[in-house]
Amino acid sequence: MVFTNAVRRALRKARLTLAAYIILGVLYLAFPHYSQLIATLMFYMILAQAFNIFMGMTGYIDFGYVAFVAMGAYGMALAVESLYELGWASIIVGFLLAVALSVALASMVGAIALRLRGAYFAIATIGVNEGVRYLIEGANLVGGSEGVIIVRELRATFGRETANFIMTGLADLALLLIGITAVMITALILSTRVGYALQAIREDEDAARALGINVTRYKVMAFTISAGIGGLLGAANWALKGGYVEPAHVFNIHYTVEAIVMVMLGGPGTLLGPIIGGLFYGSMNYFLGVIKPGLQLLFLAPILLAVVVALPKGLMGYVRERVKDPRLRELLT
């Protein structure tokens, strides 16, 4: 009973965010010309959301986050590479393996790094990300620096048409579902005890511990959930959609920095914030790149500076401070 109540509350909280994904889904079908743009935007939104579950809620910044996304990409690629004869089952196994690998890495990292605070934590996670990458490249594991390519396998099993559909349609559908899952999980966390506990940790970890909150348990929980969603994202976007998992790409720390930027733009710890941040960052970059090829980043930088100076708590933080109506405020969490 308690649980269904929580789900109901979470659904109410997530109305606006879910609506955003559903609108994107409708736009995807209505304007097939824009389908890959919408898919890219969804990738950014989910990346921000998954990152937000841990960083936004606990205040810990995981610079090595992209390693979990990479694990997911490898999970899917390895499953398809070795089990492609099983057909669709290999893709299902791929998603499972993706979650398993990223959660496994998260538990290992969590055991070590979660004892650290602030910048020490942030940078220890960079060490994990780079360490895993160079272990793969240096010891020539799972394809080494060449990575894993699964296009041939997909085409051999499913034929050209279906393989293309998997890479450009099914992968996008998977993104939508992963996005919705991420929204629901975030909303559930926010509307249960877990959310309060995490918030307490963010405000003052020592005080939270003194209050009897099992700090480690909640931290590990948020950390692994965030990693698991990242794994799914990697499996769908980099392995299935891209067809090629290359270490230099999937361990690129630039993605973590982008995630930080998006969460920060939208407002950390909120439900709607990362989505707004992802939409803004993704579309802004794309838009500038289309009208001024080559100059978009030069324009983007001052815009980011203006945002951070004017709205240091993110867009959502700014809007919420100015909205008086409590119902509207709740809608905007």
Partner: peptide, 27 residues
């Protein structure tokens, strides 16, 4: 113009600000 305004803001604001500064210099 920038750093002074983010010193007291949450940690992430300064990360975003310094990221943008680096991006600006690079471009």
């Amino acid at each position: 113009p920038v750093v002074r305004r983010v010193i007291d803001a949450p940690e992430m604001a300064s990360l975003l600000a310094t990221f943008a500064m680096g991006l600006l210099l690079q471009e």
